[in-house]
């Protein structure tokens, strides 16, 4: 089983606060890994550390992606190499056309991969197909990026970007927050369609609800900056019954 991402003894802080305290995690190719944990355990910090967010300072440890330590890489390098984060709260960017933005991003990635860039017509055709599949309102593609989008529309837009960018590792940070049941179903279907046996997923969630829709291969329990337990989907039931307190820290 090949590992696409190996996180080794990762320590990271935000400001002066130590959040990740020697975290170890391996992501297997083609698998769905869920990270569950109580508020403040470091779930979002972990996702930010992987994508190189400016809030997070990695003080020790390694993040090995496709065999290379990426701790010092720029965010855009990691993105071009295939790491995608679906943001918990996608930011609004006034005046930047959604389709224009996404085409720029898609072509940056294609160029990086040595593939020909898509012209406007090719891009729009592909985008429209994905938009329809996600049940997004078609007019959203010509609006300013995320501006005035509802919570559900923003999350669908994240998934649309994921589908178009075809990343190798997908991090979904609280993808189910703010979604009603229909949106949750549409988003999950979008994600499930992207499972191809090679692409890996890291589903970060506080609640187990999303795991009814996206079936995880592994569940990792994150508590106080460390992975304290790893198991299969049977853990969901235990967590629901007993809560996080039943998992002792190592």
């Amino acid at each position: 089983m090949s590992k696409v991402l190996e996180i080794k003894d990762l320590k990271a802080k935000i400001g002066n606060k130590d959040i990740l305290k020697g975290l170890n995690l391996d992501l297997e190719e083609g698998k769905v890994h869920a990270i569950m944990g109580p508020n403040g355990a470091g779930k979002s910090t972990l996702s930010k550390a992987i994508v190189g967010h400016y809030d997070v300072e990695v003080t020790d440890g390694e993040i090995i992606y496709k065999g290379k330590n990426i701790v010092d890489e720029e965010p855009e390098e990691r993105a071009l190499d295939g790491i995608f984060l679906s943001f918990q709260n996608p930011v609004e960017i006034p005046g930047v056309n959604n389709a224009y933005f996404l085409r720029t991003a898609v072509n940056a990635r294609r160029k990086h991969l040595g593939k020909p860039e898509l012209n406007a017509a090719e891009f729009l055709r592909a985008m429209k197909a994905d938009v329809a599949e996600l049940g997004m309102k078609p007019e959203l593609i010509n609006r300013s990026l995320n501006e005035g989008f509802s919570g559900g529309e923003k999350k669908r837009n994240e998934i649309l970007q994921m589908m178009m960018l075809e990343p190798d590792v997908v991090i979904l940070d609280e993808i189910d927050s703010g979604l009603d049941i229909d949106a949750l179903r549409a988003v999950s279907e979008g994600i499930n369609k992207m499972k191809d046996g090679k692409r890996s997923f890291l589903v970060i969630t506080h609640y187990s609800r999303i795991l009814d829709y996206i079936e995880p291969d592994y569940i990792h329990v994150l508590k106080d900056g460390q992975i304290v337990h790893t198991g299969g989907s049977e853990l969901v039931e235990q967590l629901e019954k007993e809560g996080y307190s039943s998992f002792e820290e190592k």
């Binding site: 994508v51 720029e74 855009e76 960017i93 005046g95 930047v96 933005f101 991003a105």
Partner: peptide
């Protein structure tokens, strides 16, 4: 946060700034 969002999608910093300014 806007800059980071664009960079996370693989758009380099210069292009990201220019995109935000043009939007403005």
């Amino acid at each position: 946060e806007q800059l980071f969002y664009l960079r996370q999608r693989g758009i380099n910093e210069e292009d990201a700034v220019s995109m935000i300014v043009h939007g403005f």
